Amino acid sequence: MARIAVFGAGGTIGSAVVEEAAARGHRVTAVVRTPSRLDPARFAGRPGEVSVEAGDVLAPADVARVAAGQDVLVSAVGGGDGAGHRALIEPAARALVEGLRGLGGEAPRLLAVGGAGSLETAPGVRVWDAPGLPEAVLQIMHAHGDALDYLRTVVDVRWTVLSPAAHIGPGPRTGRYRTGLEQLLTDAEGQSRISVPDYAVALVDEIEQPEHIGERFTCCAL
């Protein structure tokens, strides 16, 4: 059983990670800015224990407090619209690293939800280079890209970024997916997609069996 804290636990991906981890018997701390908005009863009936705690991902002191005693710290934060993402994602990565550095050798591993925009579709060509993408979407893509660029400069905190397929949304939990590193993946029908529950499966699998410390990887439906 791992002790896992999840920032952004009230969001679509964050709550799916909490549910998946609790279903496997892990002890999960769901971290949100306003705990009254997240009822831990929604996660009842799972083998793992879920508690809710207040925390601001942009405050390194909050990060250190929440992370103390954990095995893994998950960041599933988002910023709403494009401008919000640009103002949150990369600053959050910096605050997370600063908070974890304050714990020294007792700091847990950081596993962050990334974006698909910086994945390659051809040598030297990334998803965000496609013509016609709305500005708000580009802002989100580049916000995640900025955070990844920053984390790649960090050598004293154990980090991993998991980028989804190009399309992530509602769908069944199949428990089946494929992984890669820097190239955008597609399924058997040539579509780059994954359901939120299967993305959570891939993330918790990485928690249980670490294979990508200090790097970004991606996942896609089969």
Rank of each mutant, 00 (worst) to 15 (best):
R46C: 15
G48F: 09
A59D: 15
R65A: 06
L38M: 09
G48P: 04
G45P: 14
P35K: 09
D39R: 04
G48K: 14
A59P: 03
T34V: 03
R42D: 09
A41E: 14
D56S: 13
P40E: 08
G55D: 15
V57N: 09
D62S: 14
P60D: 09
A68N: 00
P60F: 12
G55I: 11
A67N: 05
V32N: 06
A54T: 06
S36Y: 03
A68C: 03
A61C: 05
V52S: 12
P35D: 11
P60G: 06
R46V: 12
D56I: 13
A64P: 01
V57M: 06
A54D: 07
A44R: 13
D62T: 03
P40C: 02
G55M: 14
E49V: 07
V63T: 01
D62E: 12
A67C: 02
V66E: 15
P40F: 00
P60T: 07
L38G: 02
R65Q: 05
P60Q: 09
D62G: 12
P35F: 05
D39N: 11
E53T: 14
G45T: 12
P35V: 02
G48V: 06
R65G: 03
A59I: 01
V32M: 01
V63N: 05
V52E: 15
P47K: 09
P35S: 11
F43V: 08
P40A: 07
P40T: 05
G45L: 04
D62R: 08
V32D: 08
R42Y: 01
E49S: 14
D39K: 03
A44N: 13
R42V: 14
V66Y: 09
D56K: 04
E53G: 07
A67T: 01
L58Q: 03
